[in-house]
Amino acid sequence: MKSALKIALIYLFFGVAWIILSDSATEYLFGNSRSKELYIQLSKGIFYVVTTSLLLYFFINRYQKRLEEKVKELERLNESLEIEKENIKSSNQQLENFADIASHDLKSPLRTISTLIQRFQVKFKDNLTDESVKYLEIIEDSSNKLNEKISETLRFSKVHHYKDAQEVVNLSELLESIENNIQAVIDEKNAEINFSNLPTINSSKNLLHQVFQNLIDNSIKYSKLDVSPIISIDVKEIDNKWQFCVTDNGIGIAKEDHHNIFHKYHRINNNNQSYGSGIGLSIVKEIIEKLHGEVWVESTLGEGSSIYFTLPKN
């Protein structure tokens, strides 16, 4: 209200001053022969300025009140949004805690099953028929697959909660660390992982570790029978981004499956066999998009696959 009054008074002051000064100047230059006419014009001018000042004050004051109401409304909405934000944050934390607890509670019986099977095999190995051994192996294998699916589902649920913390990442050291983590699988499959001259980039080390480990695991998992997996990791600069490529000599992917492999729980069927849990590549997609990149596949069935993804340099 004070601002509206100030503007109206300033307008009134300058308007009246202009009328008086202009009429005084006219009377001085041309004499007072038209003094009555000038007086009438002066009165009209002052009346006009006063009237428009009042109207100006009214409209500015009205607009200012509306503006204040809008500001108060925005403040209320902002408070509501902050409350909702805290509620969502709390809900996400509860969901994450639930996922951890559920994962632990589900894995405990699986560990018990696996341990009992191993003890059973040791204790009764001389009394087991070939068919019994086969059934026990199926049970143990199913238990291990379920355990893997629980672990990957938990990792997928946590991708959204990872903070996109930028840090200096030496990719060669990162891949050496991954090799050490999965050395047992590499030795078992006689796999070969090739990479050299990888850059040091600014990104999230934890998320990239998950991406490369999932892609390497995937390449080993989808390798051909009786063929040692060979996995190559290359990178090149394209404009303002890095383009990575993880290539393998595995079973390949049929063209009709290219658009599905990054979907959750989608598994490739080859010769009536299903591989993996169907979550690994969906985790890769979620992470790459979180890091503002893109991911896609180029593959021919029976000839291996190449998974490409990009990351911004800055």
Rank of each mutant, 00 (worst) to 15 (best):
F14S: 14
V16I: 15
A17E: 07
L21D: 09
S22V: 09
S22A: 14
S22H: 09
D23T: 03
D23I: 12
A25N: 01
E27T: 01
Y28P: 00
G31W: 15
S33D: 13
R34Q: 01
R34I: 04
E37A: 08
E37C: 02
I40K: 04
Q41C: 10
Q41W: 09
L42E: 08
K44L: 14
I46H: 08
V49T: 08
V49F: 12
T52N: 06
S53V: 04
L55K: 07
L55S: 12
L56R: 03
Y57R: 05
Y57F: 15
F58K: 07
F59P: 03
I60L: 10
I60C: 03
R62W: 08
Q64M: 00
Q64N: 04
K65H: 01
K65D: 00
L67H: 04
E69D: 13
E69W: 06
E69K: 08
V71Y: 12
K72Y: 07
L77G: 04
L77Y: 13
E79Y: 03
E79S: 05
S80T: 14
S80H: 00
E82K: 11
I83Y: 11
E84D: 11
N87T: 10
N87P: 00
K89C: 01
N92F: 12
N92T: 13
Q94M: 12
E96I: 05
E96M: 11
D100W: 10
D100Y: 11
I101W: 15
H104Y: 14
D105Y: 06
L106V: 02
L110G: 07
R111Q: 11
T112F: 14
S114V: 11
I117R: 00
Q121N: 08
V122L: 10
K123P: 01
D126W: 06
N127E: 09
N127P: 02
L128C: 02
L128G: 02
L128V: 08
S132C: 03
V133H: 09
V133D: 07
V133E: 15
